[in-house]
Design a protein around this nucleic acid. Sequence first.
DNA 1: CTATTTCCTAGTAAGTTGGTATGAAATATA
DNA 2: TATATTTCATACCAACTTACTAGGAAATAG
Lengths: 162, 162
Amino acid sequence: MFNVSTRVQYGFLALLALADGDGKTPVRLGSIARDLHLSFKYLENIFQSLVKARIVRGTRGPEGGYVLERDPRSLSLYDIFRALEGPVFTVECFDEESACRHLALCPVRDLWGELRGSLEKFLKRRTLADIKSKYKKPVVLAHMEMFGVAGEETGKKESASI
Amino acid sequence: MFNVSTRVQYGFLALLALADGDGKTPVRLGSIARDLHLSFKYLENIFQSLVKARIVRGTRGPEGGYVLERDPRSLSLYDIFRALEGPVFTVECFDEESACRHLALCPVRDLWGELRGSLEKFLKRRTLADIKSKYKKPVVLAHMEMFGVAGEETGKKESASI
DNA sequence: CTATTTCCTAGTAAGTTGGTATGAAATATA
DNA sequence: TATATTTCATACCAACTTACTAGGAAATAG
């Protein structure tokens, strides 16, 4: 089954929000969380993965926040998946440890290989800049319009967080 | 993340084994499990899903077993995934209940749609007959060669079953 | 009648997902 | 230097999913 996790969904949305900026002045996670109506704590969690993958860089303290560390034109959806979920495609007979004993003889092994290839191709082709250019409006604005004026309530669904 | 579950892996392999036959005389699960070195009980479990999806038909008793109920040339990988795992692609903002409030405004919604489309296209294009035709040898034979003479031990890895 | 085989309903241990909680470290501003 | 603010780091937890296993009922060929 293919599932786009909330980590990737929220992470991607937040990266788009970062890409809205001038790329120099850091954006605080607090404001992204508020504007996008996502849990601040969860976003923090997610951004630690992005920092480790050197996709964003954070600076602490007041006036701190995150900036993109990579060019949106070369930052692919694949990179983001990798940073946030680890391996994009898994099937038993492909990982080292439990490598299946059938090897080349197995009729389906090639099939999973093709499937993985097709998936990777798709994900590597789309960059952050591509997606962004399809939408005239800044992400944050679009979301704010949907939710009306940003109020006190945050977090998604019933859960209050920040 | 995309994971090919063992249900699909084993199920697909077993279907290939079924397709090796003449399509008329039922194949017992016991022999498939033995030849492919898979857990009989788990295969039974898997085949109940295939029966419900009308992909195979079972007849009980001695000389019983399973036959394909659909033409291998029109039975796609997609059908098999659906039968064994349910939905192939999931993302929060696509399912009814938790439909996201951003709707058309959300910049990534279209993206997940394209991803799903590309995945479905791949899975719908490959049929059981396609895969089978790429391999001259019957699946079961190939496996038996790998494992040597079929012995008493069954199940995958350390687990003994049947 | 009996052995064999599928059918049906449950249960369960391990792993993954979607978060939360708590506090330490850095830094701009006063 | 003190303080408020922000990221960084570690760890925890409940709900769900995956990969099976268990036990027996129903059908059927001989």
